[in-house]
Design a protein around this nucleic acid. Structure first.
Length: 500
RNA sequence: GGCCCCAUCGUCUAGUGGCCUAGGACAUCACCCUCUCAAGGUGGAGGCACGGGUUCGAAUCCCGUUGGGGCUGCCA
């Protein structure tokens, strides 16, 4: 058996859709798994709605997902092929020209069948009139009156359609340009497509495509179809570019990793069986089966995507994490490029979306803000700040002069995170006593003096330093921030509390 | 309206006649761990749409009902 040829045929009428991403991925998986070819075909026959930037958006999105393609075509450059097909179909009697308006057809339908017959479809009025081609005359396919067409579908089984239900549909517009159904079939024949994997919304029109294929290329074997379930929103409606947030680009912008997106997408309507969820590209390429795709629509769940993204984020090495996270750092961070790597190990395990990064680390680059509300929930803020200020001043190295951090080879004080030498954490601890461990003891001691356990005692200090009640580990953050800056913030906060 | 497709926890799914007192993951609740928050661990709650068949036996097969979706365009 010769290798399969699959195609992904998007139309550039908007941002690249997550559903398109899944369809492209599944097509690509089958092609790669079976040593076949994967064709990208831009279906830009609707000049009204196409835009060049969307075409490029398709390529960018596919590359982002890690999908490559062996051939690329633009339908807008293949009009001659479609014109030729129209001529042959007309000459063979498979198609005829028509000059009816919608109003003509509706009027005749109502006259013949009574009120309410407006949407009965075309009444074949022009089928026997022998009209010649002409401006404004669309070409209609002469659908056989009797018989049925069966769609052999890997996912759906063998749905059958009665020809009596299929009207003489338009295959070319009055201006001579090809409609989707014609261009689609001509290209599938021409490109030797063997597997058509596409959205379920195309299932109802597939018999038209089969009829066309048989009229156009009776000697060429039909492809096998696989109509994949649609993706729906919370209201269970098909995801729409207009009302739903579906652009792949949006997810990329919020810091979804391509590996996480691909893993989430492959699982929307398919499962490798058992309890497996996290899959590498190689694993999904080996395991994916169209036969195992489910038949019912799937809801695109941002919450689960975010969770999966968190898993991928945590699986990164520190170096990789710093690299992907850096573009998401808050304003002001670019001036202090050495700061974030020191905190990275502590925020990595706390993130799901990279756009949450500023919430975690903005205090490193900016003064705390809006801390009044936060400090209100803290225990004994005045006592804690006064006490901690004094305790920190008693730490070795506090000579009243500003301590200048120096590059060194210190370690990060975390029991669970091992930091590679590449990070080159610059701590002052070796010579000055300014380390997370020592700061912790100082806060703990002051807290004890005020009858507070560390969990409560650290509250006011955390708010003074970071402006928030939650965030990455406080003592490590203070070590990174440095003695001078921490004392400045503590005094500032203490002053704002007044003379209570 | 007509035609076609679909129906397992809130969500994504495992399940292809007995292994199911239906498994996993996300979300949710409780507890543990813990400097806050996460992460991690343990446990809980939560589902085969309904009604008929077939069968010794049905989430799994058949029919019907209900519900949802898609198509029905000189859009794709």
């Amino acid at each position: 058996m010769s290798p399969p040829r699959l195609r992904f045929a998007p139309s550039p009428t908007g941002f690249f859709h997550v559903g398109s991403g899944r369809t492209a991925l599944w097509n690509w998986l089958i092609a790669r798994q079976q040593g076949g070819q994967f064709v990208l075909r831009i279906e830009d026959t609707d000049l009204e709605r196409n835009r060049e930037e969307w075409v490029d958006g398709i390529r960018v999105a596919m590359r982002w997902l890690g999908l490559d393609w062996d051939e690329e075509y633009r339908q807008s450059q293949r009009a001659a092929l479609y014109g030729d097909a129209m001529l042959r179909l007309h000459a063979d009697g498979h198609a005829y020209y028509c000059d009816c308006t919608r109003a003509d057809v509706d009027g005749r339908n109502v006259a013949a069948l009574g009120p309410g017959a407006e949407n009965r479809g075309y009444d074949r009025h022009c089928r026997v009139r022998g009209l010649t081609p002409g401006a404004g005359r669309p070409l209609r396919f002469a659908t056989p009156r009797d018989g049925i067409t069966i769609v052999h579908d890997i996912i759906r089984g063998e749905p059958s359609f009665d020809h009596g239900e299929i009207e003489d549909f338009v295959i070319a517009r009055g201006d001579g340009s090809a409609m989707f159904i014609l261009a689609n079939v001509v290209d599938d024949v021409d490109m030797g497509i063997t597997h058509v994997v596409r959205g379920e919304e195309h299932l109802s029109n597939t018999p038209k495509g089969i009829l066309l294929w048989q009229a156009l290329a009776p000697d060429v074997a039909l492809p096998v179809w696989a109509h994949v379930p649609v993706l729906v929103n919370a209201q269970r409606k098909k995801l729409s570019k207009r009302r739903d947030k579906v652009a792949l680009e949006d997810y990329r912008a919020m810091g979804i990793l391509p590996d996480a997106m691909r893993n989430y997408l492959v699982l929307l309507g398919w499962s490798p069986g058992g309890d497996r969820e996290i899959l590498t590209v190689d694993e999904m390429t080996e395991l994916f089966r169209l036969e195992a795709v489910v038949t019912s629509p799937a809801f695109f769940d941002m919450v689960k995507l975010a969770h999966m993204n968190g898993e991928y984020l945590r699986a990164l090495s520190i170096e990789e994490f710093v690299e992907v996270a850096t573009p998401y750092l808050p304003a002001g961070a670019s001036a202090q490029v050495d700061v974030f790597p020191k905190m990275a190990p502590f925020v990595q395990e706390r993130l799901r979306l990279l756009t949450d990064l500023p919430n975690q680390v903005d205090f490193l680059y900016n003064d705390p803000y809006a801390w009044e509300d936060a400090i209100a929930s803290c225990k004994a803020p005045v006592e804690m700040l006064d006490g901690v200020l004094a305790a920190l001043a008693a730490l070795p190295g506090a000579t009243g002069t500003e301590v200048v951090p120096q590059a060194g080879t210190g370690t990060v004080h975390s029991p669970t995170v091992v930091v590679g030498p590449a990070l080159n954490i610059a701590t002052e601890s070796a010579t000055t006593g300014w380390s997370a461990a020592e700061i912790r003891v100082a806060v703990e001691t002051v807290g004890a003096a005020n009858g507070l356990k560390l969990a409560k005692a650290q509250g006011a200090v955390r708010v003074a330093i970071t402006g928030r009640t939650i965030g990455p580990p406080l003592f490590e953050a203070m070590e990174v921030l440095g003695r001078a800056e921490c004392e400045r913030r503590l005094r500032l906060a203490r002053a704002r509390l007044g003379t209570a």
